[in-house]
Design a protein around this nucleic acid. Structure first.
Lengths: 189, 189
DNA sequence: TTATAAGTAAACCGATCTGTTTACTTATAA
DNA sequence: TTATAAGTAAACAGATCGGTTTACTTATAA
């Protein structure tokens, strides 16, 4: 397997640092030092720090959703089981010692400008997560799959923030229990 | 009524700017310019920027919770109504054009150091909000008031983040509907 | 009136920020 | 072998960062 290109390595390093320390707090110099890449090379690949942030979020968007879906598919057989597995996967995520909340939620906190690309990609990420949940809900033949997707996604967001801020990874369990009720309701008990 | 002291005015300005633009992105110079206060005066009142951040969060903690509780008390008569009113108050908050999410959630995203005072006060804020919800739940004579408080607080967090990131203030309504079910369940239908 | 405290404006400090440039060093492929 | 592309290290630039200091100006209260 080919070793990752400089560009990819920069993005990987960026994801790690932005996740843990945030976006403004992470300086380019530190990032380059960590990545072992020269400044010139970085600015050959990215026009600006903001473009690197954007690329990092783009990459993370794909990787995270892919891993998430794979984990969900592996953990549940039926659509209903998969819907519930969402919260088990989240629970595992929360217990990772490198869990620093959701990169996109954190990004929005630092970039409030309405039509910023960073905001846009964050909004998109949540939309794509919603699409996946809505798809599962449709497969489960629930009455109002989109409504259920709204509900389960809201629960997931709540669990993420509660795990992050209140240091309670078990929020995933609370969310799962509520989710179970909602799913049962939606499937016409 | 006495005009606010310089200290209070600085804190007010700080809250506004930190809310909208975040903590690292808000420079002291801009903040002082906005507040119309000299740098020397600021550093007479606060030892550092971080101390100002801390004071701002402290102040916001008190003001926000006070306003929140008053609004909830005004909107609901019975404990159950008050529990539901939480989400109506949140809805109003989300529709404010100066809504930039929760200051404390945003703060955590920028300060990941485990025992940072900024993290601690954020955790505390969420705890105090929980305490209030748990109190209402007890007044409502539900079976497991603490469990219900966990659930409703999780819903509130989810609604906040959904309103902020996905630009959907109506997340408050979704959360309220789920909350209603949970409350009914907990009151032994 | 006058000492004192609290304020302002602005220069200043060293550090750090994002971003550019220069000079040199690899690889790689024709 | 040799031209080319891609890399490094480091100096540099100008702006901005948080924070200090100086000189001057108010208020206020004894």
């Amino acid at each position: 397997m080919a070793r990752p290109s400089r560009r990819d390595h920069l993005i990987e390093t960026a994801i790690t640092l932005f996740c843990e320390h945030g976006y403004h707090a992470t300086g380019i110099d530190l990032l380059l030092d960590r990545a072992g890449v020269s400044k010139k090379t970085m600015y050959q690949h990215f026009r600006s720090k903001e473009e690197l942030i954007y690329a990092a979020l783009r990459q993370y968007d794909g990787v995270f959703r892919n891993n998430f879906m794979k984990a969900v598919e592996a953990a549940g057989k039926t659509p209903k089981e998969k819907l519930l597995a969402i919260f088990d996967v989240a629970h595992t995520w929360f217990n990772d010692n490198k869990f620093f909340g959701c990169m996109f939620i954190n990004a929005i906190g630092e970039y409030s400008e309405k039509d910023s690309p960073i905001r846009e990609i964050s909004r998109q990420f949540k939309q794509l997560m919603w699409n996946y949940v809505a798809e599962l809900a449709k497969e489960a033949n629930v009455k109002e799959p989109e409504k259920l997707a709204n509900e389960l996604c809201l629960l997931l967001e709540g669990a993420i923030v509660t795990a992050q801020v209140s240091q309670k990874p078990e929020a995933a369990i609370t969310a799962k229990e509520i989710g179970k009720k909602l799913i049962d309701d939606a499937m016409g008990e």
